[in-house]
């Protein structure tokens, strides 16, 4: 068995995402999948799972190899909470279930990747605070968080990861840039390594702002 690169996409479907934003997210996911499918390295290793969160947590796509993924249409209710904490608890459980660990005789999976996209702030703040150490223990290679639109709170996301990307607008152009950036993180392993720099994410596109 070759190593798999498990990727968890965790997407906000709270009421405020309704309308143009969720349409743009669906389009962005299609583009991400298209780009992964035309990348022979990704086809050989990347697996995707999508979990949505509003007042409910739904695993709308269980872990599937990119070539076999049938993307579900992601919808959101008219209103609802933003249970990001509960969603991340679910992700922790998933990684325990999915990630194959190395043994002395068998190679396990790569460290997984987590991508979070939200346009608000967690309403289950206690659960959110409690899940952070658990999430760190899950040993993700990278956690990328996207704070979309004016109501998103990048500072909450900064508690999870250094890779927080802020989108000023929640339109198709913004999301497509974000997903393009995500897809580039998958190709970095197959690209040339610089002689001086360490292994890191590719530079984000100019239109996004990185929160410092």
């Amino acid at each position: 068995m070759s190593r798999r690169l498990l990727t968890y996409l965790c997407i906000d479907t709270s009421g405020s995402m309704n309308g143009e934003p969720i349409v743009a997210v669906n389009a962005g996911l299609q583009a991400l999948l298209g780009s992964l499918r035309s990348n022979p390295y990704a086809l050989d290793s990347v697996h995707l799972s999508i979990t949505t969160f509003d007042s409910e947590i739904k695993e709308v796509l269980p872990m599937t190899a990119v070539a076999d993924v049938m993307l579900p249409e992601i919808t959101c209710p008219k209103s609802g909470a933003t249970l990001l904490g509960a969603a991340l608890e679910h992700i922790c459980e998933q990684t325990k279930r999915d990630v194959r660990k190395s043994t002395s005789t068998e190679k396990g999976d790569w460290k997984p990747i987590l991508v979070i996209l939200t346009d608000g702030k967690p309403t289950d703040t206690l659960a959110y605070t409690e899940v952070i150490p658990q999430l760190k223990a899950c040993n993700f290679a990278t956690i990328v968080a996207c704070a979309a639109g004016p109501r998103a709170d990048p500072n909450q996301l900064k508690r999870l990861t250094d890779h927080v990307v802020s989108l000023d607008t929640m339109d198709a152009a913004g999301f497509s840039k974000f997903f393009q950036w995500v897809s580039e993180t998958f190709s970095k392993d197959s690209q040339s390594r610089g002689a001086t720099s360490s292994v890191e994410l590719p530079p984000p596109p100019a239109e996004l702002n990185i929160v410092l």
Partner: peptide, 13 residues
């Protein structure tokens, strides 16, 4: 090949 060099860290492996 099949040899495992580092059980805990796949990158290091």
């Amino acid at each position: 090949g099949g040899k495992v060099h580092d059980v805990n860290d796949s990158l290091r492996d």
